[in-house]
Amino acid sequence: MGLMEGELEIIRAEVEAVLEKYDLDREKLIPILQGVQVKLGYLPKEAMRQIAEALKVPEVDVYGVGTFYNQFRMNPPGKHQFKVCMGTACHMTGGRIIMESFERRLSISEGETTPDREFSLERVACVGCCALAPVVVVDETVEAKVRPTRVDGILLGFGLERAAPEKTAPDEGIDQGEEGREQ
């Protein structure tokens, strides 16, 4: 996936700012990756390369760590994220059905982002709200006891927002190959 104009400079500057906050030590790799993802929303290859150079570790090792943990994304996420909890309690009370409702409504699969980069759909192992299952984390808000009808309600809320006049044309579809899937 190619970067847009000016994106590389932003990545460089953000990574530099994060690196400044830490000792340049292999042990700080995970906090640094977390810091960069907070800033950029994902871990661009250019960022990982820059981190590898700064920490003097092989770049493939940074990539190995980045692809090992669930939290790290290799592709930009959507502007809004839906995380469907797939913990035991949520699964047994219909978490799968909720996931499928989102998949159907957004026409994407779990782990993917809509082509306009508005929404991304992820699964989480458990957010620790088992007593309120099934739950969905919409951006940072936990929605409790979600039914498929509530999925429609959640999307309706965003649908209004999406219809706002300042909405720009959708970007070109982004490659959601194997590496787009976060497993």
Partner: peptide, 19 residues
């Protein structure tokens, strides 16, 4: 050299290169 390493995890774990 540091060209190859383990990436991903579980059943997707494999030996590969950066990117």
């Amino acid at each position: 050299v540091g060209a190859i390493g383990f990436i991903r995890r579980g059943i997707s774990r494999k030996v590969s290169t950066f990117g």
